[in-house]
Design a protein around this nucleic acid. Structure first.
Lengths: 117, 117
DNA sequence: TTGACATATTCCGATATGGGTATATGATCT
DNA sequence: AGATCATATACCCATATCGGAATATGTCAA
């Protein structure tokens, strides 16, 4: 087996920086492919290919309008990433560290004034 | 050029489900390699290889103790992922959608009772 | 119909992957 | 020293990648 396909899930799709850039642009609203080509400074075929990957994992939707295809963000596809990573926030957030300290103190207190001591 | 190395950054490292599983176990505390082997049902060499990737992106630290190596989570390496994805939360969270509605109403109100109207 | 424009697809080549298997390194025990 | 345990590394292979270049598809305009 090789590395999982980029289209396997949102995690793989979004591992590519250019695809994150594309999404970052689309947060600002619907865009035709050529806008993305100009804004990202990439060749048109590569943009189309990246968009295909994002489409396959459901991170973007398309709408045809004349000869253009308007791509639009579908952030819902990114929820699994957020759900996974948010549990690690306590590892770096001072707010959570402070909370941990409080919880620790509470636990010690409870153990200290317990019954048979 | 090919796909970016898995060790290129946390996004790539974490795109592999087994590596996320490893981190999920390490949230519970320091563990020797063999624990992970048993808990994940993977062959020992693959676990060592995944751990190497996680080490290279800084997501875990090691400590030697006798013949064992104790691996420990370093969630800080995952912060960039959280920082990136959290801005998309508004795309799916009802809480944020409600907030957007309120903000929109405020904006309209402001435009409505403005000065020269 | 011919041509210009917007986008997608195909083919190429170099590269890194992840699992499997075998082996190397290093610590502990007898 | 030799055996055993814990872990890391090396090697093989099938596969999917990303960018580049060329080309196909489809729409609109003259």
């Amino acid at each position: 087996m090789a590395r999982a396909a980029t289209t396997a899930d949102a995690f793989n799709a979004v591992a590519e920086p250019r695809r994150r850039q594309i999404l970052d642009v689309l947060v600002g609203g619907e865009r035709p492919v050529n806008d993305l080509v100009r804004m990202l400074g990439l060749a048109q075929p590569q943009v189309s290919k990246h968009l295909r990957v994002l489409r396959e994992v459901g991170a973007v939707d398309v709408r045809e309008e004349g000869r253009q295809r308007l791509y639009r963000l579908n952030g819902h596809a990114l929820k699994p990433i957020h759900d996974w990573v948010k549990d690690y926030e306590r590892s770096w957030s001072e707010r959570f560290e402070a909370l941990d300290v409080v919880l620790e103190e509470l636990k010690e207190k409870e153990a200290g004034d317990g019954s048979s001591e």
